[in-house]
Nucleic acid binder design. Structure first.
Length: 267
DNA sequence: ATTGCTTCCTGAGCGC
DNA sequence: TGCGCTCAGGAAGCAA
């Protein structure tokens, strides 16, 4: 569900709520939700809350990293009332002051992984550059995709190339670049690469300022809804601002939205 | 090595 | 109302 701006919004909310709180228990309500990759005696206090791609990473004082991926429908809800449960609670991180962080996930694809601070996860190690970092520039994108033939949309969705983009933002970025999503990455010019990098950073920054996008079930940590959906140009739209009907196609199993007028195929 | 197809699971929305 | 079908901010795990 959430992409980079939504995850960042959640991380920002968590920073305000759970820093320095001591974890006393992690409860799994549904199997295959919480994975212990390290022996835990005590969890410790939350030292920091961070993000890498779409992963949320909590660091504790006991050399423990809690890595959370929300996938499609995961939510984190900070709850002050210990009695409270949400409709699809899969796990809870319970703090010493009786507040808790509820991990709610309708489709149950999300996961919480506990690892020692000096370890990592394979998926984390393989992630590509952070799109908002200076290291993400057109040269990186060009070198990283050299020899590939995939459509540019698939490249933008590939977490091993760019960490954090998903279906909505990939579509919006290409709309802003006026690039057809089917275009093979190998056919893009240097200028196209520059445009993609520029628009990626701009779209993500704007979305973060608006607390992300809400389509149906995304909520930030305090159950606030994002507002960026009001700024989307193609995703979920029937018509482009130019009046043309938006095309919907399948790419790598996902629906791609684009405007055939504003994003024509290259001849 | 890279690409594409299927799968995990639940619920909403649609047409009949 | 209700049934059955399609679809959903993701990505691992295969097969080709």
């Amino acid at each position: 569900m959430p992409e980079l701006p939504e995850v960042q919004t959640i991380v920002n909310g968590l920073k305000e709520n759970i820093i320095n709180k001591e974890i006393i228990e992690i409860i799994e309500y549904r199997d295959e939700t919480v994975f212990f990759h390290t022996d835990i005696e005590t969890y410790g206090k939350i030292l920091s809350v961070g993000r890498r791609g779409k992963y949320i990473i909590l660091q504790t004082t006991q050399q423990l990293k809690i890595v959370i991926h929300l996938r499609m429908t995961g939510k984190l809800i900070f709850e002050a009332n210990p009695e409270m449960k949400s409709s699809h609670t899969r796990a809870e991180i319970v703090f010493a002051d009786e507040t808790k962080l509820i991990f709610d996930d309708i489709r149950t694809f999300g996961k919480i992984e506990l690892i020692s601070s000096d370890e990592s996860l394979d998926a984390l190690d393989k992630l590509g550059k952070e799109p908002l970092s200076d290291a993400f520039d057109y040269q990186y994108l060009q070198i990283k995709t050299k020899g590939r033939k995939s459509p540019v949309k698939n490249i933008l969705m590939n977490q091993e190339i760019i960490a954090g983009l998903g279906n909505i933002y990939a579509a919006e970025i290409l709309f802003r670049c006026k690039i057809n999503p089917k275009t093979p990455i190998s056919q893009l010019s240097k200028n196209d690469f520059k445009k993609i990098v520029k628009q990626t950073k701009e779209v993500l920054q704007e979305a973060i300022l608006h607390n992300g996008t809400t389509i149906s079930d995304y909520r930030s940590v305090e159950d606030k809804t994002g507002e960026f959906q009001n700024f989307l140009n193609v995703y979920g739209k029937d018509y482009c601002n130019c009046g043309t009907k938006i095309e919907k196609i399948k790419q790598a199993g996902r629906t791609t939205f684009y405007c055939p007028e504003c994003q024509p195929e290259k001849l």
